[in-house]
Write a protein that binds this DNA or RNA. Structure first.
Length: 979
RNA sequence: GCCGAAGUGGCGGAAUUGGUAGACGCGCUGGACUCAAAAUCCAGUGAUAGCAAUGUCGUGUGGGUUCGAUUCCCACCUUCGGUACCA
């Protein structure tokens, strides 16, 4: 008997081995098949229409890929495969944004060259990506830190350097054109976009020294050198990026950060402000994203005018969007670092002014913003209001910024909250110039109301008053209408090692010279130390022989910012191996621009704005045929991690007494011991001692024994391993032998110990399941926490799909019969829905449709060859492995499901609408909008018959105790009876 | 503060231009198969009252428009993301 059983079991095992769905049994085979046949290799020439699907450039961090990263990659891969199956020649590349701070930080700590750690990180990243089955053309892989790539980043830099923005032609032109203009006409009517107004004649120009000429041209070049401010951290001896600063202090060490002026390279983004704004109209981006860019560019219309200083010939230029309120301008405020401050200060206030300037400098951006405190000092001088002719005091205050407008404002307390607050704080006069009594909801800055106390403007509404006052300002020659942009030029220098070196050196006179980008000197040299040298000089100074590479020549030692390499990488994918140019004309003429870009909204204004500006510039100089790089853009939401947090005391020693008393144990506590408290007793303790200061620490998820609770619970073993991992002795307070943690949803990050590695999921469930589950989680744009709970549903679906083709006996014999009416309906419903939803990027509902389709086919036990073949192709973009396997194993195909032979225009099934027409429709009959009955009728039934059927329906009659007022029939939707 | 997104069962989420709220999946409950378990299959599953038929309530809150509102309008509340005094 037991022998028989044994035999039987063994047989079952064999069966299991061959016929059960086991994704990992054929994965390697298919990966090899794809690679050997170069299924995803894309040519720059094709008779097929092109389509370019781009993924956001990943930074290859040491932590590797977590389940959040692939969300967008999977979605774009589905779309790329969908397009390919529709007969498009699809460019779908990947590469790495491999310059960046983490690698440099790692180098400082370990001495490992960033190139080496980056290489290792990329290898990990790539192996992880490969496991998920993306249809990338790996021959086009690139990384920004590769000299063969950044050579062309340097080339673009030099092109920018050698161009200026021609405001008359509204495009970038060679700087040589401008020089010619200066030689012939001097500065007069020059077409160059610039920051500082200069006046000189052609004779002046000729007499200028090389250095003077250079300085003038710097005012026009699209990348230029200027005095910029950086976040300086004295204790670390380094410049910090914004995201390295937390709450006004350095993230590492918590040292104070101040503003420091340094000569910096800067990118003249402001020249393109209007075009960047206008270009948004033609883009298929979400309105949310366009709004964000619009705000960032921040166009405002107003007037620029001058206020004369009393008893002086100095004029203060100001910018205002509310010229109508000028009669209410009761003081003038300058930025503390405004150039005119030094000449305006009265001797007796000199000290207090300079003290205030120092005070402002010491404040970080964050402090300026956070501390709502009002500060400022009086300069001792007065300006004359050009309309009231009254003297008004001139102040300096840090709420006015040097970089915006003219760095000076006319303050109108009645119509600006900050001016009002300032006036009240320093007891300055306030004149209410706008009567807003008709608009009780309006804030003081809203442009509504009637003018008062404003001479000839009295009685006008705001819109009219603005028009009139502008006319008056221009007639009197006080100023002009002016458009301003919030968008500022971008700092293009970094005092860092791991970035693109500038192809720039300085001669003995300090003149700037460009290097040939093919010169090996342009490559990033090794350094003895990755830390900055004293005085905030960039780490490249640690290689003196590179810096002083020739007699009298000194290299620029700053490096380019992260956005340099990532602002054009999508163009390089078109022609990645080209060593003659960044990309060939042929390649760009074929691929044009990106058709679909998928990425996170964190890049909304940074990367996406810089890329657009570079692209417009490349368009201006004739290198690209389009002036916008990304036609359609979809933002993917973040997949968040669920973190386990543990309560701990900020100041254990003081609090310990209370804690012990409730724990009923006599524990000796050393000062170094940390006390952790179970979340379920935290309230009790808080009640005992309200002054206790609590902190939430992170608790690695690996140690949590039970994932199913709302609140994580660690058992004793988990607590022990946590303690071991922490090192030292700690005290854990809990009522039971379990320890309660707090669960929190937040960004997945290594430091929060909440990272889920996709490798593990692929290993357990297969790549197809992982891909479909990520899509099934919800809409692509929405952020959502990663939760493994539902993955079984997708896994079950794939198994059921498999059993349409395989049973215990092996392959199922498919039937060549014409599909039944029911089969046709099931498959065409699914085809229709999936086609529509992929286009809409509603991929979660696609997965649902597949589930419904398989469930229904299963129910009627369909073995129809045609139907199942269609379904297999339909599913291929989502689950490339199982479908490729079935394609070959069941349908006996020799070439890949994703490789359309020449001549086949589209393989992706299209719905046959005629199969979807139903004979009957079940009308819900509602009474006053509430469903009361269902009426099943033939589809052609006319409204009159419907009405009489409805009002006589047995479930309806009993409701009709009052007369019918109206019957509303919406064909093939519903019937509503109004009583 | 401002800008943007979103609030629907125990959970993830579905629902065309306003037209049967809760598709699909998870979880849960019961059943079949099994010596048993797993897997699989079948049925049920918003709340509430009722043995049931069925009724009432129900899409963050309060109003409004409409024959009919998750969807449109107004006000408010909450959460998430971005941003920082932009004249």
């Amino acid at each position: 008997m037991w022998i028989q059983r044994f035999f039987f079991k063994k047989l079952a095992l064999i069966n299991y081995f061959f016929m059960e769905y086991n994704p990992n049994s054929f994965k390697a085979d298919i990966d090899l098949f794809w690679e050997n046949n170069q299924v995803y290799k894309v040519e720059n020439e094709s008779s097929k229409p092109k389509f370019y699907v781009l993924d956001m450039f990943p930074y290859p961090s040491g932590a590797g890929l977590h389940v959040g990263h692939p969300l967008g990659y999977i979605a774009s891969d589905i779309f790329a495969r969908f397009k390919r199956l529709q007969g498009f020649n699809v460019l779908h590349p990947i590469g790495y944004d491999s310059f960046g701070l983490p690698a440099e930080q790692y180098a400082i700590q370990t001495g490992v060259h960033p190139a080496d750690s980056t290489k290792a990180n990329i290898a990990t990243f790539k192996s992880q990506l490969k496991k998920i089955g993306f249809s990338y053309d790996w021959t086009r892989e690139l990384m920004t830190s590769d000299p063969n790539y950044y050579k062309w980043t340097q080339w673009i830099f030099l092109e920018l350097f050698n161009h200026f923005y021609n405001i008359k032609e509204d495009k970038a032109n060679p700087i040589s054109d401008l020089i010619t203009h200066f030689e012939m006409h001097g500065s007069h009517q020059n077409p160059g976009f610039h920051t500082t107004v200069l006046e000189f004649s052609p004779q002046d120009w000729k007499s200028f020294s090389e250095k003077q000429k250079e300085d003038i041209l710097m005012n026009f070049r699209l990348v230029y050198r200027t005095q910029g401010t950086v976040n300086w951290c004295e204790e670390l001896g380094t410049v910090l990026a914004n995201d390295e600063i937390k709450d006004g202090v350095s993230e590492r060490g918590g040292f104070p950060v101040t503003k420091k002026a340094m000569m910096q390279w800067s990118l003249r983004t402001s020249a393109y402000a209007q075009r960047l704004l206008d270009g948004l109209n033609q883009l298929d981006w979400s309105e949310a994203l366009k709004t964000m860019q619009t705000h960032w560019i921040g166009r405002s219309e107003g007037a620029s005018l001058s206020f004369e200083v009393k008893d002086s010939n100095i004029k203060i230029p100001i910018y205002t969007t509310r010229p109508d309120t000028i009669f209410g301008a009761t003081f003038v405020v300058l930025a503390p670092d405004h150039d005119l401050v030094s000449v305006l200060i009265n001797p007796e206030v000199k000290e207090s002014v300079s003290a205030y300037q120092e005070f402002v400098k010491s404040k970080s951006d964050r402090e300026r913003a956070d501390g709502k405190s009002i500060s400022g000092v009086f300069t001792g001088s007065y300006a004359i209001n050009p309309f009231t002719h009254k003297p008004i005091p001139i102040w300096i205050a840090d709420y006015v910024l040097k970089d915006y407008g003219t760095g000076a404002i006319m303050a109108v307390p009645s119509n600006d909250d900050r001016d009002m607050a300032f006036a009240q704080h320093f007891d300055l006069p306030i004149v209410e110039v706008i009567d807003q009594s008709d608009f009780p909801e309006a804030s003081r800055q809203d442009k509504v109301g009637k003018l008062q106390h404003s001479d000839f403007l009295n009685g006008m509404d705001v819109a009219k008053a603005i028009k009139e006052i502008l006319k008056a300002i221009e007639e009197k020659g006080l100023g002009t209408r002016k458009v301003n942009y919030r968008l500022r030029d971008a700092n293009y220098s970094r005092q860092r090692y791991w970035g693109e070196p500038f192809p720039i050196f300085y001669d003995e006179k300090g003149l700037i010279h460009a290097l040939d980008i093919h010169d090996p000197q342009c490559q990033l040299p090794p350094v003895s130390d990755y830390k900055p040298t004293t005085g905030g000089k960039a780490p490249l100074n640690n290689n003196p022989s590179w810096v002083h590479f020739a007699e009298g020549k000194t290299m620029e030692t700053d490096t380019m910012p992260g956005f340099a390499g990532s602002s054009w990488y999508f163009l390089r994918y078109m022609d990645p191996q080209n060593d003659k140019e960044a990309f060939s004309k042929k390649a760009i003429d074929y691929w044009q621009s990106v058709d679909l870009y998928l990425g996170g909204s964190e890049h909304a204004v940074g990367h996406l704005l810089y890329s657009r500006m570079w692209h417009k510039f490349l368009y201006d100089i004739g290198k690209v045929p389009t002036d916008e790089p990304f036609k359609k853009l979809i933002n993917q939401g973040m997949i968040q991690g669920v973190s386990a947090k543990i309560w701990t005391l900020k100041n254990p020693l003081q609090e310990v007494e209370n804690l012990i008393s409730i724990n009923d144990e006599n524990i000796a506590i050393a000062t170094s011991q940390q006390v952790f408290v179970s979340a379920d007793i935290i309230d009790d303790i808080k009640a005992l001692n309200p002054s206790t200061v609590w902190l939430l620490g992170t608790f690695p998820l690996d140690f949590v024994s039970d994932y199913s609770h709302n609140m994580h619970v660690a058992n004793q073993e988990g607590v022990k391993s946590f303690e071991k991992w922490k090192g030292g002795n700690h005290i854990f307070l809990s009522r039971t032998n379990e320890f309660y943690l707090v669960s929190e949803v937040e960004k997945m990050s290594k430091s929060k110990y909440n990272v889920i590695n996709p490798d593990d999921i692929v290993e357990k469930y297969g790549a197809d399941c992982f891909r479909m589950y990520e899509m099934f989680l919800g809409p692509i744009e929405q952020a959502k926490p990663w939760d493994m709970q539902g993955i079984d549903g997708v896994n079950k679906f794939l198994r059921r799909f498999w059993t349409l083709f395989y049973d215990d006996a092996g392959k199922i014999q498919l039937s060549d019969a014409v599909p039944s009416k029911e089969e046709d309906k099931i498959i065409n419903t699914c085809i229709k829905k999936v086609n529509e939803d992929i286009e809409k990027f509603s991929l979660n509902t696609c997965v649902s449709s597949f589930m419904i389709c398989v469930n229904e086919l299963k129910k009627i036990q369909s073995v129809n060859h045609e139907v199942l073949r269609k379904l297999n192709i339909l599913l291929a973009p989502f689950a490339p492995y199982i479908t490729e396997h079935i394609w070959r194993d069941i349908f006996g195909e020799k070439t890949s499901i994703h490789a359309l032979p020449e001549g086949e225009t589209s393989r992706y099934p299209l719905a046959d609408e005629s199969k979807l027409v139903a004979d009957n429709f079940d009308y819900p009959i509602c009474i006053n909008g509430k469903k009361r009955a269902i009426l099943s009728v033939a589809i052609q039934t006319d409204n009159k018959t419907l009405e009489s059927l409805a009002v006589n329906h047995e479930d309806i009659v009993k409701w009709l105790d009052t007369p019918i007022k109206k019957v509303i029939i919406v064909p093939q939707k519903m019937i509503n009876i109004v009583i």
